[in-house]
Design a protein around this nucleic acid. Structure first.
Length: 814
RNA sequence: GCCGGGAUGGCGGAAUAGGCAGACGCGGCGGUCUUAAAAACCGCUGAAGAAAUUCGUGUGGGUUCGAUCCCCUCUCCCGGCACCA
């Protein structure tokens, strides 16, 4: 009598043994080829939820698979642990953010260990510890030295809830990415990283295997556009400014300009406003200032604006056009001024219609009739009219022709614009890496010398948010001496955006204990770039984008010699409950611990992988999980039941070996493609087959034993505990996780007979067993022997026969 | 509005260089075991039909000997972007 499969007992036993014997310790001197399997590290939010498991369990299985395939695998783990959630939670509970965060690290470590992953726990990286953030500060200094970090006053996104600024990437549809509060703008002096320097390079994803979706999102985020800056002469001569420069991608429509529009924040507005229009303009500006980003960007909103009273001259036509102010023009893009061509631009059309500004057609369109007033906007290309010497030209070619003409006349120049803005990294909060900069009255901004790093976060501090950094009130922190002149200096009080910490953690994983450098060149060379990076898609224009920027910057500093950090990117889907996103407010959060503590981690792991394709995610269903538990139970039973040969036959052995070898090929291919669901389906079929063979006893004991061994080996990456237990009970040496992945014999996998499908007029009428390489003539002969087929051929004329070798024969009749 | 992805049994999903639709699992039904139940195991399970057979991969059309797969149309769902001139 075999004992019952007791997952919980087995799992804790092996987790302990793995830790004691350090079988997952990374060997830096291994001669095997390296494989860097990276999973996005978790934020120290408190508890590990089922979403973490969905991210971690399959990636762990894949790393284990690679290890069994002979790679020296680096599959590290760490904790993203600076940032606002920790600070907010600490305020709520009245404890220090450090204590809160570190207790979460401890708790999450325990939870992660219960999953049975192959992490090397000696290489854990925690971003909020000085041994890590010392090097975050160092990287800031390197970027500063390279001219990629600068301080500037600019209108920045402000979250009133978080009491801190946000980078553009962190504002989603006018709301804070973290708390969903509608953001506002503030003019503040802040630190920026010059990510725009790499705009062109960040747009392209050369030689990397990333999902199309993420690449498109990043490319759109950079938002490159080619256009022309054209100047319009200001009619009034009483101003210092003589012209207004606009940016346009449609110079082909320039003969149709009937007004100009300035953004409300454009400094020219004040100067161009005439006394008669002063009151109206001021009222309009005041109104737009009060608007939130949401209102301003709303597509439902009517286009509104106000007339400045001033005019400019369109140099191409010599015409005088009015200058308006409207908030549909953004000051942060282009020149903060656009030309209004109502006939061929939707927004200009709406604006002109509202204020009854002239509409002039300069491109013909379907149904164009000069005698009839244009009834709707036509932005599509066509032939030019009313455009002087460019009349008759196709608008597509007129774009460059007119651009060239403008350049020749000295009225403007062709230029490239991007939507991408520099990355704002200052945060007015406590729980982040200090920005290692000192302000000296005599010397100005002075970087902290490398030898003085890290600038430590003071412990004893009141960190309630006030809109200013809490560090401002910490005398012992703020007061220092200027490294240059030795006089009194004051430290930078803002801390860095947490995305700064997570933009390089994968480099630290390569050399986590280095106390002399952020990482050694040798270790970086050994492991980087990352072979496969798995995680959620929500970081498309944040973390993934910033990390690419970092690598490009480090490359230009000569620190690394490749262009991209992540060779392959894979985004897993999300796990839902009853097809809803899991959330505390819905009360539908699945706690993995409940299942791990009852039916076991192996079941939870395999269930999550069986749920559906990894990239699609899936719906957690309590009853579905027992299917996996049963499957593991069947493996348990088949492995521990003694095998008896009963009626061994060569035919049965050949059939069985065919199935075994086919299965090995299929499972290997599926796991390699991260298709765990079909890999498990195949292993289930394999299990069913081996169970039947055990009962029938029709193969030799050695064939049975080898097939059982292969089943355990292939299941090992997915369910590491039960397979280790069975491996040990069957008398194989410790550990199954240090074995080679099984190989298959293509000869043995070959079929000796295949079903040939016989169709009549494309409908299946019979299936006959034939040898795999049967000729067309023999196939036809065989088909003619089938009564089923003949029924459908009777009295019909055969028109043609289509034969697909090894698959089917289709007889077309009339 | 624009871009991207998707729609297959009661459910999650298999299967596409165009060639057996529904693998595998869940659920359901029936059975074995049991005093009984649970668990476990075995069998059946797309629809209609007594059967032969017919119908069936969101809608309508097309290409083809043959379409879940390719082309066009429409509907719905999910994700992203959204006044970028």
């Amino acid at each position: 009598m075999i004992d019952k499969y007791d997952a919980v007992a087995i799992e804790s036993k092996w987790q302990k043994k793995w830790e004691e014997t350090k079988i997952y310790k990374v060997d830096e001197n291994s001669p095997k080829p390296k494989w860097y399997a990276l999973t996005m590290f978790p934020y120290t939010s408190g508890d590990l939820h089922v979403g973490h498991w969905f991210a971690m369990a399959p990636s762990d299985a894949y790393a284990r698979f690679k290890r069994m395939q002979g790679y020296n695998v680096l599959h590290p783990v760490g904790f993203d642990s600076f940032g606002l959630p920790a600070e907010n939670a600490a305020i709520k509970r009245n404890i220090h953010p450090r204590d809160w965060t570190l207790s979460n690290v401890e708790n999450m470590t325990k939870q992660l260990k219960s999953m049975g992953p192959m992490y090397d726990w000696d290489r854990v990286v925690v971003t909020c510890l000085p041994e890590y953030y010392k090097w975050t500060e160092w990287l800031f200094l390197k970027l500063y030295e390279a001219g990629l970090a600068y301080r500037a006053k600019a209108p920045v996104n402000w979250c009133p809830q978080c009491q801190a600024v946000l980078a553009n990437e962190q504002v989603e549809q006018g709301k804070c990415w973290r708390c969903g509060t509608v953001t506002t703008h503030r003019d503040l002096e802040q630190w920026f990283f010059r990510i725009t320097k790499y705009a062109d390079e960040l747009m392209v994803h050369k030689d990397i295997d990333w999902p199309e979706r993420i690449k498109t999102m990043q490319t759109n985020w950079v938002g490159r556009s080619e256009g022309v800056e054209v100047s319009f002469e200001i009619e009034r001569k009483d101003l210092d400014e003589k012209e207004i420069v606009v940016y346009t991608t449609r110079p082909d429509t320039i003969f149709g300009v009937s007004f100009l529009v300035l953004a409300p924040e454009n400094p020219l507005v004040d100067k161009l406003t005439t006394p008669e229009h002063r009151a109206e303009i001021d009222a309009y500006i005041e109104k737009t200032r009060k608007q939130t980003e949401i209102d301003r960007l709303s597509t439902e909103k009517v286009q509104d604006g106000a007339f400045t009273g001033s005019y400019v001259i369109n140099r191409l036509t010599g015409e005088k056009v009015p200058v308006w102010v409207a908030d549909y023009v953004l000051n942060s893009y282009g020149t903060g001024a656009v030309m209004g061509v109502a006939a061929h631009d939707e927004r200009d059309w709406a604006f002109a219609t509202r204020y009854e500004l002239p509409i002039r057609t300069v491109i013909t369109y379907d149904g164009y009739d000069p005698a009839v007033k244009q009834a709707e906007c036509h932005p599509e290309p066509g032939k030019l009219i009313n455009s002087g010497k460019f009349n008759g030209m196709e608008s597509t070619s007129a774009i460059s022709a007119i651009a060239q003409y403008i350049e020749e006349q000295g009225w403007g120049k062709r230029t490239v614009r991007y939507k991408l803005r520099d990355w704002l990294i200052s945060r007015q909060r406590y729980w982040g890496a200090p920005i290692p900069m000192i302000y000296c009255e005599k010397c100005g901004i002075v970087p902290v010398p490398e030898k003085d790093l890290p600038v430590l976060l003071p412990d004893n501090i009141e960190f309630r948010p006030t809109g200013e950094s809490p560090l401002k009130y910490c005398e012992e922190f703020i007061n220092t001496t200027c490294p240059k002149c030795g006089g009194p200096g004051k430290r930078e009080i803002d801390t860095m955006d947490t995305f700064m910490c997570s933009s390089w953690y994968f480099l630290r994983y390569c050399d986590p204990h280095n106390s002399k450098e952020a990482f050694s060149k040798e270790q970086l060379k050994k492991w980087m770039p990352v072979d496969i990076y798995t995680g959620g898609a929500e970081h498309a224009v944040m973390h993934l984008f910033y990390s690419r920027f970092f690598i490009k910057a480090l490359r230009d500093m000569g620190i690394v010699d490749y262009d991209e950090p992540f060779t392959r990117l894979f985004n897993q889907g999300t796990v839902t409950k009853d097809h809803d996103k899991m959330s505390k407010s819905r009360g539908n959060v699945v706690n993995p611990d409940d299942y791990v503590n009852t039916i076991g981690a192996d079941t939870v792991r395999t269930y999550l992988m069986f749920l559906g394709p990894w990239e699609q995610g899936g719906d957690w269903d309590d009853s579905g999980i027992y299917g996996l538990s049963r499957w593991l139970g069947r493996i348990w039973n088949v492995a521990l039941t003694p095998y008896e040969e009963k009626a061994v036959s060569k035919d049965a052995e050949a059939d069985y070996l065919r199935l075994v070898n086919k299965s090995i090929a299929k499972v290997t291919g599926d796991i390699d493609k991260l298709r765990f669901n079909t890999a498990i389906a195949t292993l289930m079929e394999y299990t069913n087959a081996i169970t039947k063979i055990r009962d029938a006893g029709t193969v030799s004991k050695s064939i049975f034993d080898t097939s059982l061994r292969d089943l355990l080996l292939m299941t090992a990456p997915l369910a590491p505990h039960i397979t280790e237990e069975l491996w040990s009970r069957l008398g194989y040496g410790y550990s199954i996780h240090q074995q080679d992945w099984p190989t298959y014999d293509a000869e043995l996998a070959k079929d000796d007979e295949i079903p040939l499908i016989i169709q009549v007029n494309g409908k299946i009428r019979d299936k006959i067993m034939v040898e795999p390489n049967i000729s067309e003539d023999d196939a036809i002969l065989a088909a003619e022997k089938s009564d089923k087929v003949n029924t459908f051929l009777a009295g019909k004329e055969i028109i043609k026969k289509i034969y697909v070798p090894g698959k089917l024969l289709n007889i077309v009749v009339k």
